[in-house]
Design a protein around this nucleic acid. Structure first.
Lengths: 107, 107
DNA sequence: TCCGATATATCGGCACTCGATATATACTGG
DNA sequence: CCAGTATATATCGAGTGCCGATATATCGGA
C-alpha cells in the first residue's frame, strides 16, 4: 500500500468522512506534509470501494454542495493493521542504526 | 520509496553487496517474505545509481561468474533514514489503535 | 467581481514492480 | 552423463498507483 492510500484509510479510522474531509484530515494528521491531489484521492477511493475495504456511508447536501461519506470496512481496518506491521518490520530491519528520538516536550 | 527499493538499500547498510547477494540478504532480513524479482532488482539498482544514492563498488570474477558490488552513498543512507522517519510518522498517525506487541521470547 | 475555499470527477503521463524470458557457469544427484 | 538447481546479470511488456491538469459548481469575503 502506498502512502496516500494509507493515510486515506487512517483518516477513516476515526469514523466516516467525505472526500474533501479526508484531504483536510490527512493534512492535519501529517502537519501539512501530505496534501492529497484530487486524482489520487478519488482514484484511491474508487479502488478501495471496489476491493471492499471501504464503502459509501451516506450522501449529504450541505449548502448546495454534495458530500459523499465513506466508511472503513473491517477488511480495510485489517489492511491498515497489516501495513503498520509491515512498516514495523521494515524499521526493525535497519537494526539499531536509526534510533527513534522522542519529540521534545515543552519544558 | 517502495518496499523492494527500501530493502535493497537496507541490505547495503551493512556494506557492499552484489545483486544476487542483495536478493539473499533481503530474504534473510525479512524471514523469506521478500524475494526480489530480477526485474525489480536490476531496475532499482540502475535507478539508484542514476540518482547517486548507490554506486558501483567493484567487480569480481568468482568461479566464472561476474559479480558487481554496489555501495550505499551518503545520500542513499539519508534516504533510508528519511524513509524510516516517514514510516514512524505513519505509524504514529494511527494513534494507540495498533499497539506494538513485542515478539515472544522463548521461555 | 474576482479569488479562495469547498466539493467531486476524469484524463494522460510517469514511476515502480513484477513475471517472463534470455544467457551462462558450477555443482550435485541419479 | 545429463538434468535440475543455484549462482549471476539483463531486458521487456504489462499492470498498478500517483500526480498534475482540467473541468464543473457553489459560497463567502475582500
Amino acid at each position: 500500500m502506498r502512502e496516500p492510500t494509507y493515510y486515506i484509510m487512517t483518516a477513516l479510522l476515526e469514523g466516516p468522512l467525505h472526500g474533501y474531509g479526508i484531504v483536510k484530515e490527512v493534512e492535519a494528521l501529517t502537519d501539512g506534509r501530505i496534501r492529497l491531489a484530487a486524482g489520487t484521492l478519488y482514484g484511491a477511493l474508487d479502488r478501495l470501494v471496489e476491493r471492499g475495504e471501504i464503502e459509501v456511508d451516506r450522501e449529504e447536501q450541505v449548502s448546495g454542495r454534495r458530500r459523499r461519506y465513506y466508511r472503513l470496512r473491517p477488511s480495510g481496518e485489517d489492511a491498515v493493521a497489516a501495513e503498520v506491521s509491515r512498516m514495523r518490520s521494515a524499521i526493525a530491519a535497519t537494526g539499531t542504526r536509526f534510533v527513534a528520538t522522542k519529540p521534545a516536550v515543552s519544558p
